[in-house]
Write a protein that binds this DNA or RNA. Structure first.
Length: 478
RNA sequence: UCCCUAGUAGCUCAGUUGGUUAGAGCGGCGGACUGUUAAUCCGUAGGUCGUAGGUUCAAGUCCUACCUGGGGAGCCA
């Protein structure tokens, strides 16, 4: 007999049909004559109710059907007499596949805090919340590939181990096969990396962008989607030491094309979520408003589905950094000295400033462009004013910068000059500079932090709750 | 890394200005109940009060250090 997924049973199951399910017990209730077992197999947020007449089954077996246990149940699908569900399974055969000791199993049918579940990350998939989050995470990953594939982008696998730290995007994790207590030494007494595995110092990648550009300048449009590593000692709800990033890179795209793509891309993903993840979104939305129901009304966030629809239907505001500074300088919080950090042309915007622009002033996603060159990376296209570069940051409500990108500098001369100014060793980057040497063209790209996007779309407040096994400072369990 | 905050039963928390045998709800277990919806009712077990020092006649409560969690900031995606 073929096992059916609970999602299919609830959607297409016909009453009167013999049905087999294999799943885990969420709750069991019952009286003398009948037991009700709520089963979940991960295919949907919804449970299938099993009805077991106590006289049909061994008392010992029924006693071992506890929360967390795995069952195979065969029976007739019937119309439900109760009000919580349309159909239920009248059990004829129950096999206990794996028991779960109720004295020890940590996930009990009660409200658990996210912090507790994080410490039980190996079992938290079995909760409604994390089931919904990880189904949605999958859907978003799938939609990303879908989007780029249908636009003719190629999925490029850039290296995870890299010898260049040219991007300077923070601290890197060293990759080495040396015995830390006893590395081969040079005559000066330093570790002799020429004897290490790669014959040179190597690290885990902080970005696939530079390699991505190499691909784009031949294949046309590429994207990367892979793990990224930062050894920063960041302890926030939006940082991980290991996270996933999407980095499209496109030949012949200028900054406007880049912005258009970023906006269309984000909207595609949001629409995909609304079209394909309704039940999970509904559940996560309800969870959120439950959590916030004690907050004063003005502090509550918008309903999750409403928020997604709002972003989908709004046009992202596009302004320059310089215009943003003007707006901030004329803002109420600035005049009342409410901002903690200074606002002046040339300084990087702080999250309080970004949040003001997005949440208070424009009340919709904002794309900021043309930042001062001093606060941006060496590879960004320099404007004719000699002060700014063709950078773009997409700012979202609540999470701030979700996308950072730019048009890339295609002039070899300008790029070399800029690298020299910023003390970036051009010799080591000969392969990158070769793209500007041979057939250089206008091109652009951006990076999207996958977990931050999943946070946005699920409404989860802490980034550690949208990745299965979070890696953060002092934390690499599981 | 900095600032704030917390660590008491499996979980969520209470524990008065330091003062006898450390409490509740949920969960667990036992029982009752003719279809329940995280069911309900009755009963019951369960705690070296994060770790190490210190102050005191007396520390869950005060002090110091460390560990871990959470919130905010910085760095950034």
């Amino acid at each position: 007999m073929v096992r059916l997924k609970i999602k299919d049973i609830l959607q297409n199951g016909k009453t009167g049909e013999k049905t087999l399910v294999k799943a885990w017990v969420r709750t069991k209730r019952g009286s003398k004559n009948v037991n009700f077992i709520a089963l979940n197999d991960g295919s949907t947020i919804h449970n299938l109710q099993i009805v077991a007449d106590t006289e049909k089954f061994d008392e010992h077996l029924l006693r071992e059907i506890n929360t967390g246990a795995a069952l195979a149940v065969e029976g007739l699908l019937t119309e439900s007499q109760g009000s919580g569900q349309n159909v239920e399974l009248a059990a004829e055969k129950i096999e206990l596949l794996g028991k779960a000791d109720p004295e020890k199993y940590p996930i009990q049918p009660k409200k658990h805090t996210l912090e507790f579940l994080r410490e039980n990350a190996h079992l938290r998939f079995r909760t409604n919340t994390f089931g919904a989050v990880f189904r949605m995470r999958h859907a978003m990953a799938f939609a990303i590939h879908n989007y780029f594939n249908q636009k003719g982008f190629y999925y490029l696998h850039t290296p995870i181990i890299t010898a260049s730290d040219a991007e300077g995007a923070g601290q890197m994790f060293r990759v080495s096969t040396f015995d830390p207590l006893n590395p081969p030494l040079t005559e000066e007494g330093k570790p002799d990396y020429s004897k290490d595995f790669f014959g040179r110092p190597t690290n885990l990648t902080v970005s696939g962008q530079l390699e991505g550009e190499l691909g784009a300048l031949a294949l046309g449009e590429i994207y990367t989607f892979g793990p990224t590593f930062r050894a920063e000692n960041s302890n926030t709800t939006r940082h991980l030491a290991e996270f996933w990033m999407i980095e499209p890179e496109m030949a012949f795209y200028d900054l406007k094309d880049n912005m258009d793509l970023a906006e269309e891309f984000l909207k595609y993903l949001i629409r995909y979520a609304l079209d394909n993840c309704r039940d999970d979104l509904q559940f996560l939305g309800n969870r959120l408003s439950q959590e916030e129901k004690n907050k004063p009304k003005e502090q509550r966030s918008m309903d999750l589905v409403e928020k997604l629809e709002f972003v989908l239907n709004s046009e992202f505001v596009r302004i320059t950094y310089t215009e943003a500074i003007d707006i901030l300088k004329n803002s109420k919080p600035y005049k009342k000295k409410k901002f903690q950090f200074p606002v002046d042309w040339g300084v990087d915007l702080q999250s309080e400033h970004e949040r003001y622009l997005v949440e208070k002033h424009f009340k919709c996603p904002v794309i900021l462009t043309d930042y001062p060159k001093a606060i941006k990376a060496f590879y960004m296209k320099q404007n004719d004013d000699d002060k700014t570069v063709r950078a773009m940051d997409v700012l979202f409500p609540q999470i701030g910068e979700i996308i950072g990108g730019s048009q890339r500098e295609e002039s070899l001369e300008k790029l070399e000059k800029r690298m020299d100014e910023m003390n970036i060793p051009a010799e080591e980057m000969w392969w990158y500079l070769d793209t500007r040497r041979y057939g250089s063209v206008v091109h652009s790209g951006f990076g999207l932090g996958f977990e931050r996007f999943v946070q946005f779309v699920t409404g989860m407040g802490n980034i550690r709750d949208v990745i299965a096994f979070p890696r953060t400072p002092k934390s690499a369990e599981f």
